[in-house]
C-alpha cells in the first residue's frame, strides 16, 4: 500500500538533519508504513469544497507596536551555548555555502 521505502526514510533523515543508522532506517520504514496506511484516510473526506483550518480560533491582524522592548544580555544569549567565542556562537566548518 504505502510508498515508504528505506531510501525515502534516509532522505527524510537528511531533510530533518537526523543521522539515522541502517537499523533505524529499517525500523522506521516499517513503522511509518503502518502509520501512513492508517492516517492516509484523511483524504477520504477532505474534498475540494472543504476549506482548511490552520488556526482553531480564527483571528487576524494581531500586531505588536513598533516599540523597542526587553532584549537579552550577551550573557543570557550565550548562557547555554555549547561553544562560543568573541561574543558569538562557534560552530565547526560549514559545508556548502552562504545562502
Amino acid at each position: 500500500m504505502s510508498e515508504i521505502t528505506p531510501e525515502l526514510v534516509r532522505h527524510l533523515g537528511v531533510l530533518a538533519r537526523i543521522q539515522l543508522d541502517d537499523g533505524e532506517v529499517e525500523r522506521l520504514t516499517g513503522q511509518l508504513s503502518a502509520i501512513v496506511d492508517n492516517i492516509a484516510k484523511v483524504s477520504e473526506v477532505a474534498t475540494p469544497d472543504v476549506p482548511a483550518t490552520s488556526h482553531p480560533i480564527p483571528l487576524e491582524n494581531v500586531f505588536r507596536p513598533d516599540v523597542v522592548g526587553e532584549m537579552l544580555t550577551i550573557a543570557q544569549v550565550l548562557q547555554n551555548a555549547p561553544d562560543a567565542t568573541e561574543d558569538r556562537f562557534k560552530v565547526t566548518a560549514i559545508l556548502g555555502e552562504e545562502q
Partner: peptide
C-alpha cells in the same frame, strides 16, 4: 570565505 574555513561564528 566559507571554503577552507576552520570554524564559523554566529551573531544573531
Amino acid at each position: 570565505r566559507i571554503q577552507g574555513a576552520e570554524y564559523s561564528l554566529v551573531d544573531y
